[in-house]
Amino acid sequence: MIRVLVADDQALVRAGFGVLIESADDLDVVGLAADGAEAVELTRRTRPDVVLMDIRMPVMDGLRATARILEEADPGTVRVLMLTTFDLDEYVFGALKAGASGFLLKDTPPADLLAGIRIVAAGDALLSPSVTRHLIEEFVRRPASTRPVPPSLDGLTEREVQVLTLVARGLSNSEIGQRLFVSPATAKTHVGRLLMKLGVRDRAQLIIVAYESGLISAHPPEPG
């Protein structure tokens, strides 16, 4: 079972997500939080696999709560999937920088929401092409002086640099395998090595590293 904590300040929304998640045989709701501070406390007590986190909440917003949860948790033990009604660039970038593994709008179809929880629980990042585009655009707007120093890419092999470039362009393991003429399993192995070498938690963080390091341009070509 995948253990899920739902954090949203609207009682009806919170309850509705809870009912939807409980309808899936492989998902279990372990807590409902009305704000970010409560989400942090419930995460400590219930140890969910995935926190479904609203961004705009009182007391403590979802970005601060996400950062706090991931600072306190052991790596890989809990993942955060952000939910919001606002498809705004600063929220996308802020959520991913806080450590979130995915980003969905609240009007996402129910089946896609449940699939998103499973994807994030499995350790993958949930980034649609539109979200990736927002992330890139937000990064480009930031002054160079405010950008953190990215991890060095010097220790990567030529093949790992190729894989990182393709990850940053939004390709799946299967698509990366097709591009590089290797199996999806081999592509996944390369991605795993990148995570370890660069000290990041998932594909979302790999995308940020790729852009902040200048590995690829701000407007990469569409995969095709």
Rank of each mutant, 00 (worst) to 15 (best):
Ile2Val: 15
Val4Lys: 09
Asp8Tyr: 01
Ala11Gln: 12
Leu12Pro: 01
Val13His: 03
Arg14Glu: 09
Val19Asn: 05
Leu20Asp: 13
Glu22Ser: 15
Ser23Lys: 09
Asp25Ala: 15
Asp26Phe: 00
Leu32Ala: 07
Ala33Val: 07
Arg44His: 12
Arg45Phe: 01
Thr46Cys: 12
Asp49Ala: 09
Val50Leu: 06
Val51Glu: 08
Leu52Trp: 07
Leu52Ile: 04
Pro58Trp: 07
Pro58Gln: 10
Pro58Glu: 05
Thr66Ala: 09
Ala67Leu: 10
Arg68Asp: 13
Ile69Ser: 06
Leu70His: 04
Glu71Ala: 15
Glu72Met: 13
Pro75Cys: 13
Val78Phe: 06
Arg79Leu: 08
Val80Gln: 12
Leu83Ser: 06
Leu83Cys: 12
Asp87Gln: 02
Val92Trp: 03
Ala95Pro: 03
Ala95Gln: 03
Lys97Ile: 00
Gly102Ile: 02
Leu104Ala: 04
Thr108Tyr: 02
Thr108Ile: 14
Ala111Leu: 05
Ala111Val: 11
Ile117Pro: 03
Gly123Ile: 11
Gly123Ser: 13
Asp124Ile: 00
Ala125Tyr: 08
Pro129Asp: 01
Pro129Leu: 01
Pro129Met: 05
Pro129Ile: 03
Val131Ile: 14
His134Met: 14
Leu135Ala: 05
Arg141Val: 02
Ala144Met: 02
Thr146Val: 10
Pro151Gln: 09
Gly155Phe: 06
Leu156Arg: 08
Arg159Lys: 08
Val161Trp: 00
Gln162Asp: 11
Thr165Ser: 14
Thr165Leu: 01
Val167Met: 07
Gly170Trp: 05
Asn173Arg: 12
Glu175Ile: 02
Leu180Pro: 05
Leu180Met: 06
Val182Glu: 04
Arg193Ala: 13
Met196Asp: 14
Asp202His: 15
Arg203Ser: 15
Leu206Thr: 09
Ala210Val: 09
Tyr211Pro: 00
Ser217Ala: 14
Pro221Phe: 03
Pro223Ser: 06
